[in-house]
Design a protein around this nucleic acid. Structure first.
Lengths: 200, 200, 200, 200
DNA sequence: CATGAATGAGTCTTCATTCAT
DNA sequence: AATGAATGAAGACTCATTCAT
């Protein structure tokens, strides 16, 4: 191992550095989702990423930076998902497929709620309006994507429909979480799908 | 009651004591709503209630007890509201009036979210799973009340409707909060009202 | 009850006052023995004596006064015991009977140690040499009584014998307590009795 | 060992870390002996070890862990002593030499009592019963060592003799401490030595 | 770049003692 | 005298952040 690391020294280090950053971002996204921002320590994230605590600060100057990294993770994940959905020809199918994906995640939702929604809710409790704005942007992205779909369907009130659509998701996630019942995702997901079908 | 309090010895003391407890509960409900549980210190609540910090513990043994007190406040407030609504003859009117009340609170929702919803979301991040159950019960109360209204309307699927109704409220509150837009409450409130009217 | 307390008002109050003081002293002696001085709160003693917390200070100005009261209780108890023993004609019998009494208390010794010895040990940790002196006096009383017995037996080295005698008791109590073994009191009591018999 | 430490990376840090831990353990042993567990604050120990208060928790998670460290110190010290004594050929001499060592420590005993004995007595006041067991083990170690000596002497009743031996030490320490008289150690030490000589 | 260790501000909680009635 | 309530000074413990190597 000593030889290997000596050979790939400079680029290897860079690689490993980028890898650590990625691991930390991923760990932040997950741990912050599960435990919330305030109940999560830097050490928790470091441990989950298998990075020494003191080393975290080389990649992220503050805890807030780690929260930002988590938000970026969620943004990236969302983009992945919408990119995939955009390959479907019918906008209504895209929306319905997204609902199906949410329902599939019902166990996670029941246990920890929506990653972005709970994060935004927690960050909005802060007096300083810095991070909460960034959390809102992730949700805004989803709303905007949904709006594009409703618009593509030629429906009037696309903006409101988009809000209704995302609000429905956030609402069912919160209730599923608060009542510890994943089946709320199932039944409400069906209702949301029916609503999508009813729009003409 | 006036007679009783005259009879009891040291009524002043008891009065003051009960008053402080009430003030602390009210302060807890408000401050926890605004700042969240983890970012709120006992000192914050004590200050808001104008009670010396050390004295808080005479009324509430732990911080969690103060959270419980806040939940009780929310329960009490919810009961007040539903009791008032129950005086309306038509269940559909009851539901619509409640929506109107939510819309009226749009500025608060946009700033801090739904008191019970955000509290439940935060408490569900805890590993222990004690308080989160209690937070869930408050939400369950609202769901149950809504279900009774849908049932009174003679509608099938009252249970699912009730979930949809409360989820819609939680969803619009969360989005309004995350996007800092009180008008989301207005537009989504209108949509929710329209939905209620459409049910036959 | 109102009538009764009105009738026996003045003397009854005095009586009750003295009774409360006695109850507090007794409670202090017991609770301090079981929990130690530092781990015992005024509230603990008040509760054990069934006296309202705020009322304790009418009888005892400080916590240290309660410790003093406990020491007095032990003094009084010791005097009772030695007075009883002094009625026995033979000094050796007195000493042996005392040992037997100690052995009988073996369960208490194993659980909490010697009341006076553990109290003295704890108080001696204090920087201010106030209460520890008073605790020493109780032990000194026992040593003096023992010395009188050895002297009455016409034995040389009565002072040293007395120290040995009391030290043996303290030692077996401490070991019984530390090792949680009441039978240490039994076996060591037998050894101590044998030693008393061997002195000529 | 010099070679090893040169090889290890960042030996300075490790050294300093281990050193601090050792200093904290030693400080804990001494300060807890002098002041007792309950009257000693973490800050007291930190100050005695010349370590910033907040840093103590890097080495010891809780105050109880510091108490455990103190117990370990006492265990180590006891092992050192008995290891030294075991080099003496005659078991009786070993026991008598130990007594002599105790007598030499008479000033400390008179001021603070036996480190292990007073610690065990204080810990036994706790309801939980975790640390008290560990304190008992240290005393048990001494008893066991003594028993081996008595057994090596070919004496019947070695177990009881061992208890008597250690109890005598604890008793004379406690009396010396309670009566503030170091000479009790001297005279009782002589008596104990005489007792050892008398056993055949 | 890596990392164990250091720092110190902050938070919850306890409790002896005092106060007001 | 009696008593619930008030007060404030600790003390244990946590943790984000920084430092030294």
């Amino acid at each position: 191992m000593a030889i290997v690391s000596r050979v790939t020294d400079s680029p290897g280090t860079r690689r490993r550095g980028a890898d650590k950053r990625r691991r930390l971002s991923a760990a932040a996204a997950q741990v912050l989702h599960h435990q919330g921002v305030e109940r999560t320590t830097i050490a928790d994230i470091a441990h989950a990423a298998d990075v020494p605590v003191g080393n975290v600060y080389y990649y992220f100057k503050t805890k807030d930076d780690l929260v930002r990294a988590a938000l970026s993770e969620h943004t990236a994940r969302l983009e992945e998902i919408t990119d995939g959905l955009d390959r479907l020809p019918d906008p209504r199918e895209r929306l319905k497929t997204l609902v199906a994906a949410w329902v599939e995640q019902r166990e996670v939702a029941a246990r920890y709620g929506c990653p972005t929604g709970t994060l935004a809710a927690e960050l909005d409790k802060r007096a300083d309006g810095v991070l909460d704005r960034e959390a809102g942007e992730v949700i805004r992205m989803l709303v905007d994507w949904a709006e594009r779909q409703f618009r593509a369907l030629g429906l009037p009130g696309a903006a409101d429909h988009a809000i209704t659509f995302v609000a429905a998701y956030q609402g069912m996630s919160l209730l599923s979480n608060a009542l510890h019942d994943p089946e709320i995702m199932t039944s409400q997901g069906a209702a949301l799908t029916a609503w999508l079908d009813s729009l003409t």
